[in-house]
Simulated scan of single mutants.
Amino acid sequence: MPLATRPRAVVLDVNETLSDLAPLGPAFEEEGAPAHLAPLWFASVLRDGFGLSLAGAPRPFVEVAAGALRPLLAAAGVEDLDGAGQRVLDALGTLPVRADVPEGLQALAAAGLRVVTLTNGAVATTDALLRRGAARPHVDLLLSVEDAGAWKPDRRAYEHAARATRLAPQDLLLVAVHPWDVDGAARAGLRTAWLDRAGTPYPSHATLPDLVARDLLDLAGQLA
């Protein structure tokens, strides 16, 4: 259903929401590991990152990614763990944006909304991703949980976005493909939009989003 009032800024998740992880499968295959390890690796990174954050010891995304990668490659029979691991990590740093991202971000900005990103990764990685996709000019502010002291979905990450934008949480619309991100943002007082890129049911245990959109262009149309 439409929002009662328009948000003043959209806060976009980055990994999978803006970036396309599909090239990671071939990157694993080039090292002699099955492509299906790519989504398992990403899920493992989130699991371990969340766990460390919950324990009060958050670590940078790339550090967790490297640590979670070695056991998977070893179990797949890869012998050159250092070399293979670095090449897969390099592939992570060269991912493309999803097809709708450049035009979608432009449409959101043209609608008068501040466009902000909030990632569990590094600001430099987000900046490089958006520049590769010719989408950087449409984004006003790049944020990372590294400056919040906790990974999303900890409320401190979303409070960091509110402080950085100098806006109240209810003036922010968190946009993500991950229900756990939507749920965390809602509990921190933000309004939320779920990008249902895969056409899958929303999990019943998570807080429902305020908006559901197929992609960023659909979302921009709903907010216009």
Rank of each mutant, 00 (worst) to 15 (best):
L172P: 09
P209Y: 09
G184S: 07
D171W: 04
R214C: 14
L174R: 00
L167D: 00
A161I: 00
L174V: 11
A188V: 12
P179N: 04
L195E: 05
R163G: 01
R187I: 12
R197H: 13
D218S: 10
P169A: 00
R197A: 14
V177Q: 11
D181V: 13
A193D: 03
L190F: 10
Y202T: 13
R214K: 11
W180S: 06
W194A: 02
Q170W: 08
L172N: 02
D196N: 13
R166Y: 03
D218I: 15
D171V: 06
H205C: 15
T207E: 15
L208M: 08
A206K: 14
R214Q: 13
A164V: 01
D218L: 15
T192H: 00
R191S: 10
D210T: 12
T165G: 00
R166E: 07
V175G: 04
G184H: 07
Y202Q: 11
A213E: 05
W194T: 04
D183P: 15
S204H: 14
R214T: 15
P179H: 06
A185N: 06
P179Y: 05
A162E: 01
W180I: 09
G199N: 01
G184F: 11
A213R: 09
D171I: 07
L167K: 02
A220V: 15
A162Q: 02
H205A: 15
A186H: 06
R166P: 01
L167W: 02
A213Q: 08
L174E: 01
P201D: 08
T207K: 14
V177Y: 11
L216P: 00
A161M: 02
L211W: 13
A198H: 10
